[in-house]
C-alpha cells in the first residue's frame, strides 16, 4: 500500500492542534504547509503569526516563526523583509488583527507595496476572545457584543479591507476565496499559490482573504458553518480575484 497524502514537510509531525472541531485554520495551515514544500520556499520562509486563535501557529508550522503583537504583523514582516530581502516572508492574520487594531499597518504595508504575502482569515468574529463583533461581522449577525445582531446605525457596516487594499498600486495580487467545501479548498490553494508566486517573482505585495469557518463562535455545526459561508458570507464578501497586476509588472 502506498500513502497518497504524505504529511507536509513543513507541518510539525503528529500534533493535535488547539483549534476547535471544523475550524478553517487547520485547513489553511495544511494548504500553506503544502505550498511551502511544493514551491520550495520553506527553507527561507519566516511566518509572522498573529495574536488571536493562530497565536500558537508556531506549534504547527515547522518553519521559522515570529509572533506578533495584535495587529502589528505586517509592520514586523516589513522589518524582516527590509532587513533580509532574500527571505520569504508572510503574515497569517485574522480579521480583528488585520482589519481592526492593525488597520494602519495593513493599509500602509500594502500601499508601500512591501514584498510580503498576507494570509487573511476572515471568520467575521473575534475567535480567541470568545466571539465578539469584528469589523467584518455581517449585518444582523449576532455576536456576544452585538447580541441583537449588528446594527449598521450603531456599529457601521462590514469592512471590506481586501477590496480597499486591492485598489492600491502597490498591491500586485489580491484574491478573496470562500473556504466552504472541497472546491473552496482547491480555490484557496490556487489563490495562495498565486500570492506566494508574486513574492517569489519579486513583484510586490500579495494578499489572500479566506472566508473561513468558526463553528464554535457561530454556534453552528461545522457542516452548517460551511453552508453559512456559502449562503451568507459570500453575499457580503464576493469571492474572486480583486486585483492582479502581475502582468503589468513583468
Amino acid at each position: 500500500m502506498k500513502l497518497k497524502n504524505d504529511w507536509p514537510k513543513y507541518y510539525k509531525k503528529d500534533v493535535v492542534s488547539h483549534y476547535c472541531p471544523g475550524c478553517g485554520h487547520g485547513i489553511v495551515h495544511r494548504i500553506v504547509a503544502e505550498l511551502l514544500e511544493e514551491m520550495q520556499v520553506g527553507e527561507r520562509a519566516i511566518c509572522v503569526n498573529p495574536a488571536g486563535c493562530a497565536v500558537l501557529a508556531y506549534l504547527y508550522f515547522d518553519i521559522d516563526m515570529l509572533e506578533s503583537a495584535h495587529g502589528r504583523g505586517t509592520a514586523m514582516a516589513t522589518g524582516i523583509k527590509r532587513a533580509r530581502p532574500d527571505l520569504f516572508v508572510f503574515t497569517y492574520q485574522g480579521d480583528g488583527d488585520l482589519s481592526a487594531i492593525g488597520t494602519a499597518e495593513t493599509i500602509h504595508s500594502a500601499n508601500r507595496g512591501e514584498h510580503i504575502t498576507v494570509i487573511f482569515i476572515n471568520n467575521a468574529v473575534y475567535g480567541m476572545t470568545g466571539g465578539q463583533m469584528a469589523p467584518t461581522t455581517l449585518i444582523g449577525q449576532e455576536t456576544t457584543t452585538s447580541p441583537l445582531g449588528r446594527n449598521p446605525a450603531l456599529e457601521g457596516y462590514p469592512l471590506h479591507i481586501t477590496d480597499l487594499v486591492a485598489t492600491f498600486r502597490g498591491v500586485i495580487y489580491a484574491e478573496r476565496v470562500s473556504l466552504d467545501g472541497p472546491a473552496g479548498v482547491t480555490r484557496t490553494k490556487k489563490a495562495i499559490r498565486n500570492a506566494f508566486q508574486t513574492q517569489i517573482d519579486g513583484l510586490g505585495y500579495s494578499i489572500v482573504e479566506i472566508l473561513s469557518a468558526c463553528p464554535t463562535n457561530w454556534k453552528m455545526s461545522p457542516v452548517d458553518s460551511f453552508s453559512w459561508i456559502k449562503n451568507e458570507m459570500t453575499r457580503e464578501y464576493t469571492p474572486g480575484v480583486l486585483t492582479d497586476k502581475r502582468g503589468d509588472k513583468k
Partner: peptide, 9 residues
Amino acid sequence: NMVIGASST
C-alpha cells in the same frame, strides 16, 4: 514593530 522584525533577523 518594524524594529522587532528586523532585529529578529
